[in-house]
Lab assay of single mutants.
Amino acid sequence: MEQGTVKWFNAEKGSGFIERENGDDVFVHFSAIQGDGFKSLDEGQAVTFDVEEGQRGPQAANVQKA
């Protein structure tokens, strides 16, 4: 798993970007967020995640709040 920080997340659209510790920013969709309840992330929040190849390039998967 990688570690990173939420660069921004739009709760209305359900997507945003995570700033990786090593590498380019990666797209995140709300469906990749693990946990119960409303799936959203806050700017500056620390997260851990896997990276998968999506239709438009790398994207975060199995996102967990650190």
Rank of each mutant, 00 (worst) to 15 (best):
M1N: 14
M1D: 08
M1R: 15
M1E: 10
M1G: 12
E2Y: 15
E2F: 15
E2K: 08
E2S: 11
E2T: 09
E2N: 12
Q3H: 14
Q3S: 13
G4K: 00
G4W: 03
T5G: 04
T5N: 08
T5M: 10
T5Q: 07
V6E: 02
V6N: 04
K7A: 04
K7Y: 02
K7L: 06
K7V: 05
K7R: 08
K7T: 06
W8M: 05
W8L: 04
W8T: 06
W8V: 06
W8I: 04
W8R: 05
F9W: 15
F9E: 03
F9I: 02
F9T: 03
F9K: 01
F9V: 04
F9L: 03
N10L: 04
N10M: 02
A11D: 07
A11P: 13
A11Y: 11
A11W: 11
A11I: 11
E12V: 12
E12Q: 14
E12L: 14
E12S: 13
K13I: 12
K13D: 07
K13V: 10
K13P: 03
K13E: 08
K13C: 14
K13S: 10
G14R: 00
G14I: 02
G14Q: 03
G14M: 01
G14P: 02
S15N: 11
S15C: 15
S15R: 10
S15A: 11
S15D: 05
S15K: 10
G16R: 00
G16E: 02
G16C: 05
G16Y: 02
G16N: 00
G16F: 02
F17Q: 04
F17Y: 08
F17L: 07
I18P: 02
I18T: 01
I18Y: 00
E19N: 09
E19V: 14
E19F: 11
E19D: 06
E19G: 10
E19Y: 12
E19W: 13
R20C: 08
R20H: 05
R20F: 06
E21Q: 12
E21K: 12
E21S: 11
E21V: 12
E21R: 09
N22P: 05
N22Y: 11
N22K: 09
N22S: 10
N22H: 11
N22W: 10
N22C: 14
N22D: 10
G23S: 06
G23T: 06
G23V: 02
D24C: 14
D24T: 14
D24N: 12
D24Y: 10
D24F: 11
D24Q: 13
D25A: 08
D25F: 13
D25I: 12
D25S: 09
D25Q: 11
D25W: 14
V26D: 02
V26G: 00
V26Y: 01
V26I: 13
F27K: 01
F27P: 04
F27W: 09
F27A: 05
F27R: 02
F27E: 04
V28L: 07
V28G: 03
V28W: 01
V28Y: 04
V28M: 05
H29Y: 04
H29F: 07
H29G: 04
H29V: 02
H29R: 00
H29P: 03
F30M: 05
F30D: 03
F30G: 03
F30I: 08
F30T: 04
F30V: 08
F30H: 07
F30C: 08
S31A: 06
S31L: 07
S31C: 09
S31Q: 07
S31R: 09
S31G: 06
A32T: 04
A32C: 07
A32W: 02
A32K: 06
I33S: 02
I33V: 07
I33K: 00
I33F: 04
Q34Y: 09
Q34K: 12
Q34N: 11
G35D: 09
G35H: 08
G35F: 08
D36F: 11
D36K: 11
D36A: 12
G37K: 06
G37N: 05
G37F: 05
G37D: 06
F38G: 07
F38C: 11
F38R: 06
F38A: 06
F38E: 07
K39P: 06
K39G: 05
K39F: 07
K39N: 06
K39S: 06
S40C: 14
S40F: 13
S40W: 14
S40P: 03
S40D: 05
S40L: 07
S40M: 09
L41T: 03
L41Q: 00
D42W: 14
D42L: 15
D42A: 14
D42N: 14
D42Q: 15
D42H: 15
D42P: 07
E43Q: 15
E43W: 14
G44L: 02
G44K: 06
G44W: 04
G44S: 05
G44D: 04
G44E: 02
Q45P: 03
Q45K: 02
Q45D: 13
A46S: 11
A46T: 11
A46W: 14
V47H: 00
V47G: 00
T48K: 08
T48G: 04
T48Q: 10
T48Y: 12
T48H: 08
T48P: 00
F49R: 00
F49A: 02
F49M: 03
F49I: 01
F49E: 02
F49S: 01
D50I: 14
D50G: 07
D50V: 14
V51S: 03
V51L: 12
V51W: 09
V51R: 03
V51G: 01
E52H: 11
E52L: 13
E52K: 11
E52F: 14
E52A: 10
E52C: 15
E52I: 15
E52Q: 11
E52Y: 13
E53T: 11
E53H: 12
E53F: 13
G54P: 02
G54W: 05
G54T: 13
G54I: 05
G54N: 07
Q55W: 13
Q55V: 14
Q55D: 12
Q55T: 14
Q55R: 15
Q55C: 15
Q55Y: 13
R56Q: 10
R56K: 11
R56S: 10
R56E: 08
G57W: 08
G57R: 04
G57K: 03
G57H: 06
G57T: 04
G57I: 05
G57F: 07
P58W: 09
P58L: 10
P58Y: 08
P58H: 07
P58F: 09
P58R: 07
P58M: 09
Q59P: 04
Q59Y: 15
Q59C: 09
Q59R: 09
Q59S: 07
A60T: 05
A60G: 03
A61W: 03
A61Q: 10
A61F: 12
A61I: 14
A61M: 11
N62G: 03
N62P: 00
N62L: 04
V63S: 01
V63E: 02
V63C: 04
Q64F: 10
Q64I: 12
Q64N: 12
Q64D: 08
Q64R: 13
Q64C: 11
K65G: 10
K65Y: 10
K65R: 09
K65N: 10
A66D: 10
A66F: 12
A66N: 12
A66W: 11
A66G: 11
A66V: 15
